[in-house]
């Protein structure tokens, strides 16, 4: 299993420009609205609500905002690579430049969590994130995301 079944190549933003966490989340919600056809406002509120609980910045410049969205029919991801990192209140205080937004239907339960942990694992791989940071090509980023990291596979 890799991430390609969670995210479409169309949902990759290869060079996003955002100045703040809020703007970043707004742009992500906008993209997600385009992919899913659901209202942008609702998506934005959902992920913002989760951020209030605590930052989803997982360290080393990576954030994985996520939330449950009524009306969405399957687990859907949006990925953004930022031109300049923004502060995300991450655990290690490092600004964030790789963001994977994950939206799950209400009843997704275990699948939602499994998807989250897989994303966390792929984006924990330093080699992989270096490759993603080094390109502005959506197709290339999508293929890097689809790779299963060799280390941390345990």
């Amino acid at each position: 299993m890799d991430l390609s079944d969670l995210i479409d190549q169309k949902a990759v933003i290869p060079a996003m420009k955002a100045n703040s966490k809020k703007q970043l989340l707004q742009l992500l919600a906008e993209k997600a609205a385009g992919v899913t056809g659901l209202p942008e406002r609702e998506i934005f509120d959902t992920i913002l609500q989760r951020e209030r609980l605590g930052s989803t910045g997982v360290g080393n410049g990576v954030a994985i905002p996520h939330g449950k969205l009524p009306g969405i029919d399957r687990i859907t991801g949006v990925f953004a690579r930022l031109e300049t990192p923004v502060d995300f209140e991450a655990i290690d205080d490092q600004p964030v430049d790789l963001v994977f937004l994950l939206l799950a239907p209400e009843g997704a339960g275990a699948d939602h969590l499994k998807a989250l942990s897989r994303i966390a694992r792929v984006l924990r791989d330093a080699e992989n994130t270096a490759k993603i940071r080094g390109t502005k090509d959506a197709a290339a980023i999508h293929s890097f995301l689809a790779q299963t990291p060799a280390s941390n596979a345990a």
């Binding site: 609500q49 989760r50 209030r52 609980l53 605590g54 930052s55 989803t56 910045g57 997982v58 994985i64 996520h66 939330g67 449950k68 209140e89 655990i91 939602h112 969590l113 989250l116 942990s117 966390a120």
Partner: peptide, 17 residues
């Protein structure tokens, strides 16, 4: 992986997960 603010109500956890 994720941070959680311990002062938030537990209902937030229920809503998200």
């Amino acid at each position: 992986a994720f941070s959680v603010d311990p002062e938030r109500p537990a209902s937030d956890i229920e809503a998200a997960y």
